[in-house]
Amino acid sequence: MSVSNLKPTQGTGEHPGKISQRERKKAKTRAAIQQEALRLFRDQGYEATTIEQIAEAAEVSASTVFRYFATKEDLVVSDDETFFVQAFRAQPPELPPVQAMRRALYSTLEGLSATEMSTQRDRDILMVTVPELWSASLGNVKQTLRTLAELVAERTGAGPSDAPVRALSGAIFGIMMDVMLRWANQPELDPAAELDRLLACLEDGFQEPGA
Rank of each mutant, 00 (worst) to 15 (best):
R197G: 04
N185A: 12
Q207S: 10
S137T: 10
L133S: 08
W134T: 14
T12W: 11
E73F: 04
L112I: 02
R155E: 04
D190S: 08
R102W: 02
Q34D: 00
K28S: 01
L38W: 02
V76P: 01
A37Q: 03
F88P: 01
I33V: 10
A153H: 13
A32G: 13
L189G: 09
E132V: 14
E14D: 05
S20I: 10
P96L: 11
S107I: 10
K72D: 05
T156L: 05
G205V: 05
G174I: 06
P16T: 11
V65D: 03
Q34Y: 00
D74Y: 01
A37C: 06
R102G: 00
R30L: 11
S63I: 01
L199P: 01
G157V: 12
G210R: 03
D43I: 06
V85K: 10
F84H: 01
L168K: 07
Q186H: 10
G111R: 08
G13W: 06
M180C: 07
D162E: 15
A57Q: 09
A171V: 11
F69L: 00
T12K: 07
G210S: 07
L202N: 00
L109K: 08
A90D: 14
R42L: 01
M101C: 13
R123C: 07
G174N: 11
G159I: 05
D122K: 03
T64W: 02
P187V: 12
V3A: 14
F206E: 04
E56D: 14
L138Q: 14
K26Y: 12
F206I: 05
F69Y: 08
D74S: 15
E154F: 09
Q99Y: 02
Q34F: 01
R155V: 06
G45Y: 07
A184L: 06
D74K: 10
P187T: 09
R22L: 06
A149K: 11
K18L: 09
V128S: 14
G159L: 13
T115D: 15
A62S: 14
S137D: 15
V179K: 06
L133T: 04
R102N: 00
H15K: 11
V85S: 10
G111T: 13
V60K: 00
P97E: 08
A158E: 14
M177E: 07
A31R: 08
F69D: 03
P92A: 15
P160E: 11
D190T: 03
M127T: 12
S113P: 08
I125P: 00
Q143P: 00
S61E: 12
D162I: 12
T108A: 11
T144E: 12
S20F: 12
T49W: 05
S107A: 14
L133G: 05
L38S: 03
L112T: 04
D196E: 13
N140A: 15
V141R: 15
D196P: 02
R24C: 02
Q35S: 10
L112G: 00
Q86C: 06
C201G: 05
N185M: 08
F83D: 11
Q35K: 07
L198E: 09
A149I: 15
